[in-house]
Amino acid sequence: MTRGPSWFNVTSIVLGFSFLYLPIVLLVIYSFNESRLVTVWGGFSTKWYVELLQNDQLLDAAWVTLRVAFVSASVATVLGTMAALVLVRSGRFMGRSMFSGMIFAPLVMPEVILGLSLLLLFVAMDQARGFWTVIIAHTTFAMCYVAVVVQSRLVGFDKSVEEAAEDLGCPPIKTFFLITLPIILPGVIAGWMLAFTLSLDDLVIASFTTGPGATTLPMKIYSQVRLGVTPEINAVCTILVVLVSIGVIAASIATKRQQVQRERDERAAFGADG
């Protein structure tokens, strides 16, 4: 006998999901609003999407954001992976706990403080603020997230695999690129994606460290909202939501497939053993 879901369960699920997703659903719906007034429904229209394509300011901001996210995520991935390797591999060395503490400090440091201190640094260095200072700032705080993700992948890594490569005549640096990197690649990619997303939606640190001509999308949206929410902003946000959803769904389908394939392979292998 199977019992249908109880009413209590149904209500909790509906309430829970509404709490989480109702705002986003509203945002998506109102992006197709005919009316100029955000809160009044004036019929279905895609005119804000068309207008968006003609809004150079918003498009510029989006382009800057993508470039910042791409460059800072890439640099943070290289540095974060190196930091993780040192932490996992070098064993005990002088100042190890201080090193690890300092790498992970930005995780708990309030963003305002991080942004302010970076601003002070750039001012002290007499550095003109703009595109590159935002990249440096984003690299700094994204690096620790990459280090955490890659470190967790490295902890489960059988070091004798690297030893085997060296034993077979492969020098250490080549071993890293031929053996270690391909094995930890999923962790590195996950770290890169995390760094990319963090940079993409950062408002606080970018506001402190940016200068003229390098306004990121979150900053643009925030400043426009202060002048009143336009349906155009809803349209931009809807596009972002769709892009992120596609990314998440594609990634989870890929992992699921891989897992199923792996399980099938393993079953086949053990069935074949005499």
């Binding site: 004798s160 695999v161 030893e163």
Partner: peptide, 12 residues
């Protein structure tokens, strides 16, 4: 050359 206890095969 060495044969390792865990075999240490290259998984990829």
């Amino acid at each position: 050359n060495m044969m390792f206890q865990s075999y240490a095969l290259f998984p990829h």
